[in-house]
Computed example of a mutant assay.
Amino acid sequence: MLNEQLRNIVQGMPKAELHIHIEGSLEPELIFALAQRNSVSLAYPSVEALRQAYAFTDLQSFLDIYYAGASVLLTEQDFYDMTAAYLKRAHADSVRHAEIFFDPQTHTARGVPFETVINGIWRACQDAPISASLIMCFLRHLSEDEALDTLEQAQPFLDKFIGVGLDSSEVGHPPEKFRRVFERARALGLRLVAHAGEEGPPDYITSALEVLNVERIDHGVRCLEDPVLVECIKREQIALTVCPLSNIKLRVFDVMGEHNLRKLLDAGLKATVNSDDPAYFGGYINQNFVAAFEALPLDASHAKQLARNSFEASFIEPEQKRAFLAEVDAFFANVPAA
């Protein structure tokens, strides 16, 4: 069991969340409320039945129910309400800054206008009790031409998001499939991230770095299988946005005690802890911290490193970054010696 002092540290320390899919924060209660508001029929008779369906065998089985849940999002207010609920929860978990993924293709494919999606999410960020930025993700199971079309639709809204990412089904959809759209996004001055090395092999991390020129790897836990890649990530100070509970839920690791978070830190890699799709994977950011610290040999020094990593890896301005890092240091200066 995690001792109370360490639990209080990981829950109370200032932190940034860099890997959160806003559609993956849709709790069953809100799904049913939005379905009722929008007269959308669901395949599940109750909140409890929907929650019981959250038993996934792999990434694809999760994605199937994830896209079904997103079907209730139709109006700008729906996207606002979903985002506001997450930001309130993040604030309660001592998150100071969040960089939020959103998947416009999930919604435009259903006839929801791009502007409805981004305006609702962005407006909630402006009203939030914490700092928040948006990263637009391309669905990798779709074609690059569809991604390019999405980037074109996003042109009038470049002031509302800071970067692009790559998510959805990883295996069979290597990063190099999206070379042109990432080149275009880079030319527009957008920050670049990509999911790689979760279910996909370490080679996907290498091509995300070398072909897409991403600045941050989402997940990346399989990098340890390739010592040359580990040295590259360490040398270039590429951050990994690790999501412990997600990795267990999707069977990347069988149990938390087998997770390699401590090994990533021991290798000198800039790992961070995040919640991924918290409504589906059993926990928001603090629950991820608690689960990892309960199961792994991690202590207050690792907590401080993870908190600092989260801000150092963020895309916030240098002055704000320094202020957040100073807040982390001040918090840990008041932590009693173990």
Results as ranks from 00 to 15, higher is better:
130 I>H: 12
116 T>R: 09
120 G>D: 04
104 P>C: 04
126 Q>C: 09
125 C>E: 03
135 I>H: 00
128 A>P: 01
105 Q>A: 09
99 E>T: 02
90 A>M: 06
134 L>I: 05
118 I>P: 00
97 H>K: 01
102 F>Y: 13
91 H>Y: 14
115 E>R: 15
96 R>C: 11
115 E>C: 04
126 Q>W: 02
114 F>I: 11
98 A>L: 02
88 K>C: 12
102 F>S: 12
114 F>L: 14
120 G>C: 06
97 H>W: 13
89 R>Q: 15
134 L>D: 01
128 A>Q: 09
91 H>W: 13
137 C>Y: 02
131 S>Y: 00
113 P>I: 15
133 S>F: 00
90 A>R: 15
123 R>E: 11
129 P>K: 05
94 S>G: 02
99 E>I: 03
119 N>W: 04
93 D>H: 12
95 V>S: 10
126 Q>A: 02
115 E>H: 14
99 E>A: 09
117 V>A: 01
120 G>L: 05
101 F>N: 12
95 V>F: 08
107 H>F: 08
94 S>N: 12
96 R>W: 07
129 P>N: 08
109 A>P: 00
104 P>Q: 04
93 D>Q: 13
129 P>M: 05
122 W>S: 11
91 H>M: 11
137 C>Q: 06
112 V>G: 01
89 R>N: 11
127 D>E: 11
123 R>Q: 15
92 A>D: 15
91 H>Q: 14
137 C>S: 14
116 T>N: 07
137 C>H: 06
105 Q>M: 10
108 T>W: 14
132 A>D: 02
113 P>R: 11
103 D>H: 15
126 Q>F: 02
111 G>R: 07
88 K>T: 15
111 G>V: 07
136 M>T: 03
130 I>S: 04
128 A>L: 09
95 V>H: 02
89 R>M: 12
105 Q>L: 14
132 A>K: 02
131 S>K: 00
107 H>Q: 12
128 A>W: 15
119 N>M: 08
131 S>A: 11
125 C>D: 05
92 A>G: 11
87 L>D: 04
90 A>G: 04
94 S>V: 08
130 I>N: 03
91 H>G: 03
108 T>F: 06
95 V>T: 09
96 R>A: 10
120 G>E: 07
121 I>S: 00
109 A>G: 09
99 E>R: 00
128 A>F: 13
103 D>V: 06
96 R>I: 05
92 A>M: 13
96 R>N: 07
107 H>E: 07
125 C>A: 11
88 K>Q: 15
120 G>H: 09
98 A>V: 03
124 A>E: 08
91 H>D: 10
124 A>S: 09
118 I>E: 01
94 S>M: 11
114 F>M: 12
100 I>N: 07
136 M>R: 01
109 A>H: 11
88 K>F: 10
121 I>K: 01
124 A>T: 00
109 A>C: 04
135 I>Y: 07
113 P>K: 11
137 C>G: 05
129 P>D: 06
130 I>F: 06
119 N>H: 10
98 A>I: 01
111 G>Q: 03
87 L>G: 00
108 T>S: 10
89 R>E: 15
123 R>M: 08
97 H>Q: 05
99 E>D: 05
125 C>Q: 06
88 K>L: 14
101 F>Y: 15
102 F>M: 10
133 S>R: 12
108 T>A: 10
110 R>I: 09
